[in-house]
Amino acid sequence: MSTEDINLIAEYLSDPELKDLSSTPSVDCIVICASAILYQAEYLFELLQERPSVSQCVVLCGGVGHSTEFMYDAVAQHPRFSPIAKDIHGLPEARVLERILDTFFDRSAIADGGCRILIEDQSTNCGRNASLSRKVLDEAGFQALHTCVVIQDPTMMRRTKASFHKAYEDQPSSPSFISCPVFIPQMQTSRDGELEYQNLPRGRNLWPPDRFLELILGEIPRLRDDGNGYGPRGKGFIPHVELPNQVEEAWFRLSHGFNASR
C-alpha cells in the first residue's frame, strides 16, 4: 500500500481550512464534535484559557453512539486525563469533554473572558451533530451566526462540515463554516516495513493503523453523490461534495491493496 495514497486521502478528508486557531480573528462560534482523538479538545481548551475572546461560544457536541467506548478507552490511556476514567463511563461524549474541561482546565476563566460553553449531548452521527448543535445555538440566542469553526476527528472533517451546511440550508444567508481538524494524520513506512504515523501530536496515541485505514476508506463512499452515498442523489444527508479524481484514484488503489492484504 502506498503511503502517498493514504496521505492524499487523509489530507482531503481533514479539509484543513484552518490549522491554527491561536492567531485567527475571533469567530461567533466553535463547535467541537467529541471523538477518541482527545488532542483536539486539549488543544482547544488550552487555547480558550489563554484567549477566551477567540469565540463568543463553544458547543461541546456528542451523545452516546457506536464509537463512545473508544472515547472512554482514550481517556483511560491518556497521560493527563486518566484519573477521571472511572467516572465517565455511561456519560454522553459531550459530557466527557465537559468533565475534562471542568477537571483539568479553568472553565470559569473562559466564561469570565466572554465565551459561553454550550452542551449538545444527544447526537449520534454527523447529521445530528449539526442539526442538534443548531438547535442548542438557536435556543441560546445564537441565531444569526456569521462565522463558525468546526472541529472534528480528521477522518470525518469534510463530511461534518457538509452536514453543518445541510443543517443551515434553509437560511437565506448561511453561516461561513470553517473546518479545523487541528492536525492532519500522515503515515510513513517504518524501517521494518510497517505503517506508522509521522510526527504524532505531543506523543499522543492515534488510531491503530488498520483502524485508521478502515476509517478513511469507508469515508470516501459516504461522500459520493451517487445512489449509495450521502449526497443528494443518495441518502440526502449532505449537500453535493466534489470528489477530486486523484482522491478517487488513490481510494481505488488503496482499497484494493488493503483488501488484498487481509
Rank of each mutant, 00 (worst) to 15 (best):
L44E: 11
Q49N: 15
C115E: 09
L101K: 05
R51F: 01
E46K: 15
Q56W: 02
I84P: 12
E46H: 11
H66E: 11
T103R: 06
V75S: 07
F45A: 13
L97Y: 15
Q77W: 02
F105P: 05
Q56Y: 09
E120I: 13
F81M: 10
D73K: 15
D87W: 02
E98Y: 08
A41Q: 11
A111R: 14
F105N: 06
L48A: 03
D121G: 02
R95M: 09
G90E: 11
E42F: 00
A74V: 04
V64A: 06
Y72V: 07
A76T: 07
C115T: 13
V64L: 14
Y43G: 05
P92S: 14
Q49W: 00
L47E: 09
F105A: 09
S67V: 13
G113M: 06
L48K: 04
I110P: 02
H66C: 00
R99E: 12
V54D: 04
A76Y: 11
P92I: 12
I84L: 09
I117A: 00
R51L: 02
Y72C: 08
A94E: 11
I100E: 03
I88Y: 08
G62Q: 08
M71E: 14
G65T: 01
R107T: 06
I110Q: 03
V58K: 01
F104A: 07
I110L: 01
P52R: 12
E120Y: 09
Q56P: 01
V75A: 06
F105Q: 07
P92M: 13
E69Q: 14
R116L: 13
E98T: 03
I119H: 03
V59D: 04
P52Q: 14
E50Q: 15
V54Q: 10
S82W: 05
G65I: 01
F104S: 05
A74I: 04
K86Y: 04
Q56V: 03
V59Y: 07
S53Q: 15
E93A: 10
L60K: 13
R116E: 14
S53Y: 04
S55M: 06
G63K: 13
D106F: 01
L60M: 11
Y72L: 06
G62M: 10
P92H: 13
F45P: 08
R51I: 01
Q77Y: 03
E69S: 14
F45G: 13
F70H: 14
R116P: 00
L118R: 07
V96Y: 03
I100L: 15
C57E: 08
G90Y: 07
H89A: 10
V75C: 02
G63L: 13
H78I: 06
R51S: 06
E98K: 15
S67W: 11
L47M: 12
V75G: 03
A94Q: 10
C61V: 03
G114I: 05
D102T: 05
C57K: 10
S108G: 02
F104P: 03
A74D: 09
C115P: 10
Q56R: 15
S108W: 05
D106W: 00
R80Q: 13
V64R: 13
A94D: 12
G90L: 07
A111Y: 03
E50D: 12
L44W: 07
L91R: 12
R51V: 02
G65H: 13
V54M: 14
T68M: 09
H89D: 04
G63Y: 12
D121E: 15
L118A: 08
C57D: 04
Y72D: 11
P83M: 04
A76V: 04
D102Y: 00
S108Q: 15
T103P: 01
L47G: 09
L118T: 03
